[in-house]
Design a protein around this nucleic acid. Structure first.
Length: 493
RNA sequence: GGCGGCAUAGCCAAGUGGCUAAGGCAGCGGUCUGCAAAACCGUUAUUCACCGGUUCGAAUCCGGUUGCCGCCUCCA
């Protein structure tokens, strides 16, 4: 079966046909490095991380390129405000970005180029555009003449005339058409500059991506991605630049992820509702954030809130609880013989058949526009199936049963690897979760442990009243005790 | 003003022509437990914003209405 996904360019789902059999070239617009990354960046990064991991899982040789835009007005402003160079700013935020991504377990793209390392290429591309009559020089600035590019608007689905009618366009004397955009900006005081045929200046936004994608993936490549806000003007302008210069199609498929919202409103700095990745990770395990993102389709708007993260945390706990049961059962055993598969019967066989179909269902879901939400649903079903199987009264950890449990764990882990989930050890997960929650709520774990010891003494002497008083007092703080086989463990709800 | 998206249970969410409308969270009842927790079982939408149409058949296609949102300016 083939992979199908939504192509923004065609406004419909299409079967994926790579340019070169078995290979995928994908370019995703990275961040402009002038500030700490927020949940929106996390979503985009997680979505494309999963997409590229999945393509590798499906056997493609994936070349994933994600850039850093490290020269831009906002970076310059910040550098000037702090009285440092733009390199100080960009390097700082590249480091911060990389740290956040590593914390989220987002795999580093194969190639991560920077705009400032590609100035020569930009000058070359702009020169070509001028030669082709698609761009013009004006007082050291170079502008792209959008009217000269017939396909302008094809990605965002808007006609130049409509945009003009929108009227909310800056009037700039230097531009022939208000929709024209800067390819090169003449240097003003206090700005970094590079020598160019048009004088000292710096690149405009958009041109860097045209140059870097071409450099690493060629004139035409398979997939171009980014946040949905980039459709216009950024990606539209990239198409104008690249296709204008080469006369070839820039990318066959365009994938755009939906936005994170807060209280149904767009998350933006002006609304002051921006959440930094690192702040969220203080309160939640990174896989909780991943699950939160992956439980919705990547194109849907996703409402971010404490409650929804908390729900995802519950779900993640459910997964690790099931995994823990499976691992505990498998630990300390001498393994199982794979020949057991032959002799499976009844319930064992049913469960095994179900588990064995899991990866196939996963692939089916993912092949259909990367439907991670459905895939996650299958994982939950498997967790429930296995909890039920292992919890049956007449269940015994015999060879054939261990074989089934092992198969289930392996399938879940295999899928987890693609989605970036279940990478922790269950015990480590729960310990981290507990410590994080305790800190969040200002609870003293030592004090809790003492009370639990005290309760054990009461329980041993069957002083249920005292034992329950302790349980209730802890419960009032959100601490949940679990008595199992003479040992009491605790979690925070 | 132009372009586009969305509307599925208390909440989140998958499903885009036809078997019982996934899954998660929350709730309720039960099993288990000294009591709990976890887990499991059962239960919570005869119905998919509303109106009309196409069809043997629609949450799914078409038209209209209402509501919410995004883009058109920097933005993942």
């Amino acid at each position: 079966m083939a992979m199908r996904f939504y192509n923004t360019l065609k406004r419909r789902k299409e079967e994926f046909k790579p340019i070169r059999e078995g290979k995928v070239g994908i370019y995703v617009c990275g961040i402009t490095v002038y500030d700490i990354c927020h949940v929106g960046h996390a979503r985009s990064a997680i979505v494309f991380d999963v997409i590229t991991r999945y393509m590798k899982y499906r056997g493609f040789d994936v070349t994933y390129v994600k850039n850093y835009t490290d020269v831009d007005d906002k970076i310059i402003n910040k550098a000037n405000a702090e009285k440092v160079g733009i390199r100080d700013i960009s390097e700082r935020y590249i480091e911060e970005h990389d740290r956040d991504m590593a914390a989220l377990n987002v795999a580093r793209p194969a190639i991560t180029p920077k705009a400032t390392e590609n100035i020569e290429g930009m000058i070359g591309l702009i020169t070509q555009l001028i030669e082709k009559g698609l761009a013009y020089v004006m007082d050291g600035d170079v502008y792209y003449a959008v009217e000269k590019f017939p396909g302008y608007g094809k990605l965002s689905g808007r006609a130049l005339d409509d945009m003009m009618a929108g009227a909310r366009v800056d009037i700039d004397e230097k531009k022939r058409n208000p929709m024209d955009f800067a390819l090169w900006k003449a240097s003003k005081g206090g700005e970094p500059w590079w020598e160019s045929p048009w004088g000292r200046g710096r690149p405009g936004w958009h041109i860097e991506c045209s140059v870097m994608s071409q450099r690493y993936l060629g004139d035409t490549f398979d997939i171009h991605g980014g946040g949905e806000d980039l459709i216009f003007p950024h990606h539209e302008n990239e198409i104008a630049q690249s296709e204008g210069a080469t006369g070839k199609v820039l990318a066959h498929y365009w994938i755009h992820n939906g936005f994170i919202k807060v209280n149904s409103e767009k998350m933006s700095k002006s609304l002051g509702n921006v959440f930094a990745i690192r702040d969220i990770l203080k309160h939640y395990h990174p896989e909780v954030l991943r699950l939160f993102v992956l439980q919705s389709h990547y194109k849907s708007p996703l409402d971010f809130s404490e409650d929804s993260l908390s729900e995802a945390r519950m779900g993640m706990g459910r997964f690790y609880e099931a995994l823990k049961k499976m691992e505990d059962m498998l630990a300390g055993t001498q393994g199982h013989s794979s020949a057991a598969a032959e002799s499976l019967a009844g319930k064992d066989k049913d469960v095994y058949e179900n588990v064995r179909s899991l990866t196939g269902r996963f692939v089916e879901a993912m092949d259909d526009d990367f439907n991670t939400a459905r895939a996650v649903g299958y994982l939950f079903e498997t967790a429930r199936l296995m909890n039920g199987y292992m919890g049956e009264k007449n269940f015994s950890a015999a060879d054939h049963a261990l074989f089934v449990v092992h198969a289930a764990k392996a399938a879940m882990k295999e899928i987890g690897h693609v989605l970036g989930l279940f990478l922790d050890e269950p015990d480590a997960y729960f310990l981290k979760d507990r410590n994080r929650e305790a800190e969040k709520r200002g609870l003293d774990t030592g004090e809790i442990e003492n009370l639990i010891s005290e309760r054990k003494v009461a329980r041993d002497s069957k002083d249920w009243k005292r034992a329950d008083d302790i349980r209730n007092s802890l419960a009032a703080k959100g601490i949940v005790l679990k008595d199992s086989q003479g040992v009491t463990t605790w979690t925070i709800e």
